[in-house]
């Protein structure tokens, strides 16, 4: 009887908690997200020329020599960023493949430079941002390589 007296509230409290924490809370938050911040709530979709081209937050499969390449040894496997030194080392390859002046490529990297500690720390760039900038600046060069 004593065990039974505790099992009934345990079962009921389990179901109440399940409904509140496991259904109502995430669904209400989803509703708020969809209404108030639909862009972020749906994965920060980026567009080029009106077409969706993936999430701003994720790396993309840039493998052609005309693009800056992402890294493939990150913790997440989809790290969108590369260090500045890694980016600079790719400048000659992109120059050879596209003819875009190295000075412009380096300026582009500086334009999109970020820091791991906000104002200092290691310099890095977001690969998609830089590549998108190149595509927008040289649409005719990049036309054969994009979707």
């Amino acid at each position: 009887m004593r065990a039974g007296a505790k099992i009934s509230p345990a079962i009921r409290m389990t179901l109440i908690s399940l409904v509140i924490c496991g259904l109502v809370f995430p669904i209400v938050m989803t509703g708020i997200g969809e209404v108030a911040m639909p862009w972020q709530a749906n994965g920060s979709q980026v567009y080029y020329d009106g077409r969706p081209i993936g999430s701003e937050l994720l790396t993309q499969d840039f493998s052609l020599p005309v693009f800056f390449h992402p890294r493939n040894d990150s913790a997440s496997g989809v790290d969108p960023d590369i260090t500045m030194s890694s980016a600079i080392s790719q400048v000659p390859r992109i120059h050879n493949a596209t003819g875009i002046p190295e000075s412009f490529l380096n300026e582009s990297l500086q334009k999109y430079r970020q820091y791991t500690l906000f104002f200092f720390g290691t310099e890095y760039v977001n690969v998609l941002e830089v590549n998108l900038y190149l595509v927008e600046t040289y649409p005719s060069i990049y036309a054969p390589y994009i979707q």
């Binding site: 669904i27 749906n42 993309q60 499969d61 052609l64 693009f67 590549n131 054969p144 979707q147």
Partner: peptide, 16 residues
């Protein structure tokens, strides 16, 4: 979904 480079795709995991 399609990404910027031709014929390249990525998974976008939208969830709670």
């Amino acid at each position: 979904e399609p990404t910027l480079q031709k014929d390249a795709y990525e998974w976008i995991y939208r969830g709670p």
